[in-house]
C-alpha cells in the first residue's frame, strides 16, 4: 500500500465547487491520470481518498490537502495529476506518507477581504471581549453560541484581515460567522461582501498539517 498526501489550491470560480462535488472531481481526475488507484470493496467500488477538512462553498483554498492510496509507488504523481484538473485547481505537491495527521487538524488560517475593513481600534475592542455571543448555524438548527474561545487570532495585515480559527471535529468556526459577529458587535461597522481564503490548516501548535 502506498499512501500519498496531495496538497492543492482551489482558486477562482472553482471555489464554488462544493465539497461533495469536489470529492467526485478528484476521483475522476485520478482516473484520468490513470494512476494505480486502490479501490474500496463492495458494490460501488470507489478510489480510497480522504480529505483533511472540507472547504466551504465560496472559500478559496491555498494549501488544501487530501490523502490517496495507490497500489504501486508513483513518484510523478503531482505531474501526472496536474494536467487532469479543471480550471482553478492546481496541484502544489504530492508526497509519500505513512500516516496522515488529518486528525490533528484543530485550526485554520484565513484572510478575509471585506468591502470595509474594521479599524485597528475596532478590531482590538472586538478581540478584548471575553464573550462574543452570536447566532451559529449548525446541523441541528440555529443556536446562539460564544465564539470568542474559537478565535485565536484576528489582525489586519497588508490590507486584509487575518484570522486563525478553531477547525476540526472538536470545535469549528466559519470565517463568515466571525464577520457576521463583527457586524453585530462592533458599533457602526458593516463588513459588506467578503472574500475568504483559507491559507492553511494547522494543529494546536499552529504547525501546518
Amino acid at each position: 500500500m502506498h499512501k500519498y498526501i496531495v496538497r492543492y489550491s482551489k482558486r477562482g470560480d472553482a471555489k464554488f465547487v462544493s465539497h461533495l462535488d469536489f470529492l467526485r472531481l478528484i476521483q475522476r481526475a485520478m482516473r484520468r491520470a490513470e494512476l494505480p488507484l486502490k479501490f474500496s470493496e463492495g458494490f460501488n467500488p470507489h478510489p480510497c481518498l480522504s480529505f483533511a477538512h472540507p472547504l466551504g462553498v465560496g472559500i478559496t483554498g491555498e494549501r488544501e490537502l487530501f490523502e490517496v492510496e495507490l497500489t504501486a509507488p508513483c513518484p510523478a504523481l503531482a505531474a501526472q495529476l496536474a494536467p487532469k484538473m479543471p480550471r482553478g485547481i492546481e496541484i502544489v505537491e504530492a508526497v509519500p506518507c505513512e500516516k496522515n495527521r488529518f486528525s490533528a487538524v484543530s485550526r485554520a488560517e484565513y484572510t478575509v477581504l471585506p468591502e470595509t475593513l474594521p479599524t485597528a481600534d475596532q478590531l482590538d475592542a472586538f478581540m478584548k471581549k471575553t464573550e462574543i455571543l452570536t447566532e451559529k448555524k449548525t446541523k441541528s438548527g440555529v443556536k446562539t453560541a460564544d465564539i470568542r474561545p474559537d478565535i485565536f487570532d484576528a489582525r489586519i495585515e497588508d490590507g486584509t484581515l487575518f484570522l486563525r480559527l478553531a477547525t476540526g471535529s472538536q470545535a469549528n468556526l466559519k470565517p463568515s460567522t466571525v464577520m457576521d459577529a463583527m457586524g453585530e458587535h462592533i458599533p457602526g461597522y458593516t463588513p459588506g461582501f467578503c472574500r475568504y481564503t483559507r491559507l492553511r490548516l494547522t494543529d494546536a501548535e499552529n504547525k501546518e498539517i
Binding site: A14, F16, V17, P86, F193
Partner: peptide
C-alpha cells in the same frame, strides 16, 4: 458576478470551466 454566485443555489451551473470545456 461573484456576488451573484454567492447568492444562488448550485453556482456551478453558471461558472463553466469544467474539465473538457472548450
Amino acid at each position: 458576478f461573484e456576488k451573484i454566485l454567492n447568492a444562488v443555489q448550485k453556482p456551478t451551473r453558471y461558472i463553466g470551466g469544467e474539465y473538457g470545456a472548450v
